[in-house]
Write a protein that binds this DNA or RNA. Structure first.
Lengths: 150, 150
DNA sequence: TATTGTTATACTCTATAACTATA
DNA sequence: TATAGTTATAGAGTATAACAATA
């Protein structure tokens, strides 16, 4: 820091302080996750799509976009990039051909199989300092926070 | 959800669950903040810069980029947009003219004066369900989490 | 006519690297 | 030559809206 920059002290409310800490914790972990994803050529939204497809088999694009809170047009672009890389496949629903159902390819499953353990390690490293019941407590508090916002 | 999508049940570790909750809580609040910023034409990084300048007077751009963990080239672009909108001002350091010192303009201060209370309301709404000592507890846990990652 | 998905546009952010000006 | 800042480029995400295909 250069000499002439002047830090000022201001008081901040409990809520603002809590937010600053929440943000810092999130960003710190999120950066680690992105570092783990990048060598595999994956962005965060792309990983979210893949991880969702691992749990839900063959959703229509509209379902997918709603589940992940993404605009349908933008999801379309994300799916294009994933499909170009051969991680994902679109197949029209045989009954109602307006629907595209989205599936992981074998390659997509393989990529997930290598990426997910790396991310688990990041998370174990982050939360490992907490004991099991502390983790549960934190989780409950964050769940309350999440629900409180809606 | 369309009929043919198939949810699958998998077990997830405590750490992953804690992360999911952390992420959901963060994203929920973050979206609210962005909604509050958008009518003022501010993006999140732009607000971060302005908020930092409210506390630190006249930092050099390099200091600023390091404080906010932004690349100096990208910070330059963000400052250009803020300067175009008249919220921020660059003045070369009279002693060493390699440095640009960055200042809030009067307009920038005015915008902050209207935006910050709105964001405070978002945060009070989010954390208001917690009592003071609960907020402090959450804050301490998140602080530990943040430090543990580094 | 309503719904699903695609395409188009404009803007911002990020990563990376070459370039300019000052010291 | 080192440092601070700028510019350039390419890729990705987001918001918004018009468009095509199917029902």
């Amino acid at each position: 820091m250069t000499a002439a920059s002047v830090p000022a002290q201001t008081t901040r409310s409990r809520a603002v302080l809590a937010w600053v800490h929440l943000m810092r914790a999130f960003v710190a972990i999120d950066r680690r996750i992105e570092q783990a994803l990048r060598p595999h050529g994956l962005t965060h939204p792309q990983f979210e799509v893949l991880a969702h497809l691992r749990r839900v088999h063959g959703p229509a694009q509209l379902d997918l976009s709603q589940s992940l809170l993404l605009d349908k047009g933008n999801l379309c672009g994300i799916l294009n990039r994933l499909a170009e890389d051969g991680l994902v496949e679109r197949r029209p629903d045989p009954v109602d051909r307006r629907y595209n159902r989205v599936y992981l390819t074998t390659r997509g499953r393989e990529v997930l199989a290598t990426v997910i353990p790396e991310i688990d390690m990041v998370l174990e490293g982050a939360f490992g300092a907490f004991g099991p019941e502390e983790q549960d407590g934190l989780r409950r508090a964050l769940g309350r926070l999440d629900r409180g916002v809606e």
